[in-house]
Design a protein around this nucleic acid. Structure first.
Lengths: 244, 244
DNA sequence: TAGTGGTCTAGACCACTGG
DNA sequence: CAGTGGTCTAGACCACTAT
């Protein structure tokens, strides 16, 4: 009787979705599945692996396979409108408030603009950019990697070239330079991570990433920053507020 | 020498990322991998399966395993700002223009408001809602499922209850009712699809979905529509434009 | 008909966890 | 220490594709 691994996975999935198995609960182990379904150990292994790749469970070698939990961080893209009375407190996904990611591993250096980035920033090919890359973590768990690119000619000699750019962050410093970002364009896509990305974000199998490319523009429509972000999709809910 | 399947997958992934293997190209088959790496057939199979679950390849049983392509549709969430001169033509991901998804399988019916939806619409528990569900497809390939919920008391007896609501769509009809949506809140999340979702969107393994919940508000901050969307992440790039 | 991916078995060894 | 998941082998059968 083929199709056995999928069958077993279906059974377990049903038990998860029905609430019979709660987040954090331990699933029946491989030996248990071998006994109750009369299959080979590897088939039991594959059944569990299906749930892991679906993001419904995670395996802890030597211990067991467990139902995964989903407690996302809320990222509100739009700051000014966020105080609007509409859409306050009305969210479909529960999210922990005040679990704010903290920046770590800040690295700042100058480099030649990558092709795509230079194009977004309206720079000549090969022009220098300031690169600010950092990782964000919550409770020691990495949740996001971000890399900002700014025209080197614009920011050289300012606090933006420091790992800690001072109060208000780099946007405050840009404002002091007469280049305050006021408009933003975000491009967003979801996909499975590469092996390096999996390692860098310490992702469980079956977790997609959200890739965001945000370009910041001044009042006179000049692009002054490109920020490329990679988010652990299992840790985030994004929120956008739009008018008109 | 363990770790073999991952090694093989790494080799193939490198060849894909280097451009040695182009999108659409056929990967070395299982028998070929068995010969060149001296492994068991099942190990070769698992190596290929790793690339499939990573979304880098897809398998066509009886034919071969091929490198996947990524030609997304661009979805611009914000309409009014979309004509801004900033952020025009500056996109990081190439996307086909004019591959517009078409709605199919439109179903309209009245039902009791699901718990979460009722909350978002500020309705009494158990209040009736009009449900409009439809599927969107491009070139016969399904790319999105969308379900809208509107307060039944508001829209009963209007063209909104028809599968085809007329020119301008349901928002034009809402405007005629004095309930024009002008503000929107979108919550967004990426995850792996369930089995049903995989089937409904005809998704390849290793393709995440984007789940979007959009609430529409009138000028006087009244929620009038909740639209729940499920997108094939491999088919979409989302764009948001923000001010201030 | 030959080749392909999909799946299963029965047994094996490993590294790790937890009491 | 026993129990867990992770992986590999060698062989098998199936349904499908392409020629």
């Amino acid at each position: 009787m083929p199709e056995t691994a999928r069958q077993i996975a279906d059974d377990l999935r049903a038990r998860i979705e029905s609430g019979d198995l709660q987040p954090g609960d331990r699933l029946p182990g491989e030996p248990s599945l071998v006994r109750t379904y009369g299959v080979a150990k590897m088939t039991a292994n594959q059944a569990l692996k299906i749930l892991v790749t679906e993001g419904l469970a995670y395996a802890r070698p030597g211990s067991g396979t467990y139902v995964r939990e989903f407690r996302p961080i809320r990222r509100v893209a739009n700051d000014r409108l966020s105080k609007a009375r509409w859409a306050s407190g009305h969210s479909i996904w529960a999210a922990d408030v005040d679990r704010r990611p903290l920046a770590t591993d800040v690295q700042v250096y100058e480099a030649e603009a990558p092709h795509q980035i230079g194009r977004l920033l309206n720079l000549e090919p090969g022009a220098p950019v300031l690169v600010r890359s950092r990782k964000y973590a919550v409770e020691d768990r990495p949740v996001q990697i971000a890399t900002s690119y700014l025209p080197a000619d614009l920011v050289r000699g300012t606090a933006i070239t420091e790992p800690n750019p001072g109060p208000g962050g780099i946007y405050a410093r840009l404002a002091e330079l007469g280049a305050e970002p006021v408009n933003f364009a975000e491009e967003l896509r979801a996909r499975m991570p590469s092996e390096e990305e999996r390692a860098a974000l310490n992702l469980a199998a079956g977790t997609p990433v959200l890739e965001i490319c945000r370009t910041a523009f001044t009042e006179d429509e000049r692009p002054v920053e490109v920020n490329q972000m990679l988010l652990d999709a299992g840790s985030y809910v994004l929120e956008y507020r739009l008018s008109s």
